[in-house]
């Protein structure tokens, strides 16, 4: 029963975050690049003020899977690295924490670009 409740939270919060993105698209007609940037900045902000961990505790994938989570890891990485490495952490922290995601995105994009060809929209 508890696991079901967990997944329900994930669904509801993830869905609401995405619906908020859609609302921005409908009302302001912005492009997907701007949507992604907006949500990354929201994530960075939430982590910087320390709110993110509270949300992530009960929302789990509902907030980690949206790109907000990507922004939060960038900020979290920077903060953590500053604590351990001092000044250098400002530069190394963000990318170190997100290296897996970025490398995966680049690597798989390159791989599939070599394999597949673009399809015309129907």
């Amino acid at each position: 029963m508890e696991i079901f409740l967990d997944y329900l939270w994930v669904f509801l919060i993830g869905g609401l975050v995405c619906a908020f993105g859609e609302l921005l698209i409908i009302t302001t007609n912005i492009t997907s690049a701007r949507i992604l940037v907006t949500f990354v900045l929201i994530g960075v902000f939430l982590e910087a003020v320390g709110l993110y961990d509270y949300i992530s505790d009960f929302a789990k994938a509902g907030i980690n899977v949206p790109i907000v989570g990507f922004g939060a890891s960038l900020a979290k990485g920077a903060i953590g690295a500053v604590k351990t490495h001092g000044f250098l952490g400002i530069f190394t922290g963000g990318l170190t924490a997100t290296a897996g995601g970025i490398a995966a995105a680049i690597g798989f994009a390159f791989l599939f670009a070599l394999i597949f060809k673009s399809h015309t929209k129907k």
Binding site: T31, S32, S118, H119, T120, K121
Partner: peptide, 14 residues
């Protein structure tokens, strides 16, 4: 369609 789309707008698969 496909050449105009990539020149003026976004990639087809986006």
């Amino acid at each position: 369609f496909s050449t105009a789309e990539r020149q003026y707008r976004f990639p087809l698969e986006l």
